[in-house]
Amino acid sequence: MTTIRVAVPRKGRPLYAVLERVADESGATAVADRIISTLRHEKSITKGVNNPSQSVYDRLAEYSDPTDATAPEYTLYRDARSGLPRRIVFDSVTVPIGDDEIQLVGREEPFRALRKHEFALGFDSADLVLEEVVTLRSDPLTDMDAVNDRINPHDTDVRVVNGLGDTVYHTLLGDPDVVGNDPTRAFVESYTGPLCISPRYERLVEAVLGTTAVDTVEFCYPDDGVEEEAAIADAGLGVYLTVSGSTAREHGLVLGERLFPSETVLLENRAELTSAHERTKGLFATSETVVTPSL
């Protein structure tokens, strides 16, 4: 039996999407549910919703079972909150699928681990690919299928294989007094003024709007402790990830054009692929979002 190591995020929606897909392919639903439930509980502690009597170290010991080779493992991560408290996050789990074992290995940034040739396969948010390696052009990047065509082969051997379908969208939001009822890319091209975004998304927004469209805008960012929707309402126009848009509407914003899908994607480092990796890739390359290969 061959063990295939696959890099995955340590927490959050992309990890949950991977675990759910692994459960679908392997039948390991109980293990996946256990990991997701544990991490959601730990997130509630991080957010102050729960106040456990056990210390973080006691909880980590409780979640671990060193006698069970199939049991999930967790590790401690320094959280960015005041005081840098420790947070329990995913470390690894091994699941048999067919003739192979898939070992999911937690990494802070799976995409970068693939870029460094530490893994042949991995999962990460499509956003990180846009933030790091796609070429910025005057014309906007509008869909996942075009991502590989904008990756310079001299920059990296990593390519997007497909998405897992856990899609939310980077969406234009705006004050109707500023943007009207339906802001679009065309509106941004004729707009001069502030555009509120998350600081980590500056390059992504340039990619999905196109460099021409952002020539006359001035990026601004939410202050610490201020909700993104509230900051966009103050600026008049912004880009933010939306699911239902209910919070945006509560701040008096209208939802405009969906600029780009944000979802978990399967990534491959083509220089590291073996036949075993190809078998594993085939297990996951079955969603509706399949990216056309780029040579």
Rank of each mutant, 00 (worst) to 15 (best):
M1I: 12
T2V: 13
I4L: 14
I4W: 12
A7E: 04
G12Y: 02
R13C: 06
L15S: 05
V18T: 04
V22S: 02
E25M: 13
G27P: 11
A28Q: 10
T29M: 13
R34M: 14
I35H: 06
S37Q: 12
R40D: 14
S44R: 15
S53D: 13
S53T: 15
S55K: 12
Y57I: 14
Y57F: 15
E62H: 09
E62R: 14
S64I: 06
T67M: 11
T67Y: 12
A69I: 13
T70L: 14
A71C: 03
Y74H: 04
Y77I: 02
R78F: 00
R86A: 14
I88E: 12
V89P: 11
F90H: 12
T94M: 12
G98R: 12
I102S: 07
I102D: 08
V105M: 06
R107H: 15
P110S: 10
H117P: 02
E118V: 10
G122L: 12
F123Q: 10
S125T: 03
S125E: 02
L128V: 14
V129D: 05
L136P: 11
R137I: 09
S138H: 07
T142K: 03
D143Q: 06
D145Q: 06
N148Y: 03
N152W: 09
N152A: 13
P153Q: 05
T156S: 08
Y169K: 00
H170A: 08
D177I: 06
T184Q: 05
R185T: 08
F187R: 04
E189A: 12
G193K: 01
P194I: 13
S198L: 11
P199W: 01
P199C: 03
E202L: 08
R203F: 00
V205K: 00
V205E: 00
T211M: 04
T212P: 00
V217G: 06
F219D: 11
C220G: 04
Y221P: 02
Y221S: 00
E228H: 09
E229A: 02
A230W: 04
A231M: 05
L237M: 07
L237P: 06
G238C: 03
L241I: 01
V243I: 06
R249C: 00
E250Q: 07
E250C: 02
G252W: 03
L259F: 02
L259N: 01
V265D: 08
V265S: 09
E268N: 05
R270A: 15
A271I: 06
A271W: 01
A271P: 00
E272N: 07
T274N: 10
H277D: 15
E278T: 13
T280A: 15
T280C: 15
G282A: 11
L283P: 04
A285T: 00
T286Y: 02
